[in-house]
Structures are given as structure tokens and as C-alpha cells.
Amino acid sequence: MSTLDLARQLNAVETICVKRELQTRCASQPFDYIFVLDFEATCWDRLDKDRGYSEIIEFPCVLYYVKKENIVAEFQEYVMPIEKPRLTAFCTELTGISQKQVDNGCPLGTCLMLFRQWLNKQMIKFGITMETPYSKCTFATWSDWDLGVCLRNECRRKRIAYPTFFENWMDVRYLYREFYQRRPKGLYGALSEVGLEFTGRQHCGLDDARNTAKLIGRMIADGIFLRNTTESSGE
């Protein structure tokens, strides 16, 4: 029996019920495709005195097709940290990412180049455009940390040009709080509140991205109208 099933039996989980108009909502959404990102980065125990800046060590993205309610493509690269190249035991335990994986990974600049190539292939394959204000696709993250803080700061420190295609994105956590009027305990808690189970390993970037896409699908089914919540200054 899963933890969620047990919690339901004990009446410890409150499931949010919203009237669904999936077909109408899917048709009215401004985005046909959503690129869902969830970076994992170097991290330390709060008592560790040898802390450093966060460096991306896993760069995953899934492409969610709104009308079909499924993921149609995935990207994942492990990234080599150079400021603090040795992962802490805390980081490895939290993310499941090994020292060997990041040692064999690529530098951030190379990863961004590979991602751009993959992104272009998907856009050609599915006929995606990024025209504004109503584009066929956008990026999505659980909170603004990934694109607004982590990647931006790391690009600045390493003198890497911040990609222009990351100028706009939707903060799924912000939309969730606004739509359901709830403050969930992380992505796992948000899924539980709407009656979904987290699939995979928490803090695996690719699994987090997949589950964020699943949550977006449920939010659409429950009647949300998606929109970009953040505009990057590109600095």
C-alpha cells in the first residue's frame, strides 16, 4: 500500500475537487506545448561551513502536449560542476546523482548548446513557434528558482550568455497557489492535494519534470487558464 493510499484511509489527505471541462479548456489554452524544466544543483547541509554557489548538475526537460495530455519528448544531461567539483554526501543522497555522473557530464555551456539543438529539433518536428503574446509553447518550472535564480546566476558567474529563449516562463507553483488558494508542501504535496501520486524519485530532475507536467495536466482539467507569470530581464 502506498503512503498516499494509507493517508487516504486515515482521512489525512484532503483532495481538491474542481468541476472539469477538459475538452473546452484544452482548446482555449494559449499553449499547445509546454517545455517543463527542473534543474538539480550542487547543495549542502545547512550546517556545512564549506558551502558554495549552486551549480546545475542535472539539466532535464520534458515536452508536454496539452491537447493529448502526454509527454512527447524528453531531454536530460548531467552537468559537470567546476566551482565545487566534489559533490557532498548530502547532495548525492538528496538527488541520487553520483560523482561519476557529473565527472562524465558536460560543462554548462556545452549543455546549453545541446539543449538548444534538441529544442530546435522539437520545434521543427511539432511545428512549434514562440511568437508573443499568444505563442504555441512556453517553458514551465515549479517556482522561479530554476530560470530566475539558479541558471541566471550561474551564467553570470561563468560569463555564459543567458539564453534568450528563456525570457518568459510560467511558475507552476504560483499558478497552483492562485488557482486552488492553497500553499502545498512542495511538488509532492501539490500532487497529493489534487489526488495524484508522485511517480519516480523525488529530487531526480527528470522525474520532477515529468510530475510537474502531470500536475499541469490536472490543473488544466480542473479549469485553470495557463499563462506566463514571469518575464526575465535577460541580465
Rank of each mutant, 00 (worst) to 15 (best):
I57C: 03
F166W: 13
H203F: 01
T132M: 03
I56F: 03
G127H: 10
W145H: 10
N70L: 07
I56W: 06
A7F: 13
K84P: 00
R218F: 01
F31G: 01
D50V: 00
M113A: 14
A209D: 01
R46Y: 14
G127M: 03
E40I: 07
C91M: 07
V172W: 10
G109S: 15
N168F: 14
T164Q: 15
A190T: 04
T92F: 00
S54L: 04
L206H: 06
K214S: 12
R177Y: 01
C17A: 05
D146A: 06
V66K: 07
S143M: 09
S232D: 13
L187N: 05
R152H: 10
E69C: 02
V149N: 14
P60V: 06
D45V: 10
L215K: 04
Q99E: 08
R8M: 09
N120H: 13
K67P: 00
M80N: 11
N153A: 12
C111F: 11
K121M: 10
N211P: 09
T229P: 07
Q122F: 01
N228V: 02
I16H: 12
C91N: 06
R177D: 06
K19C: 02
R227D: 00
V79P: 01
D144I: 08
K136F: 05
Y176N: 05
F126R: 09
A209S: 13
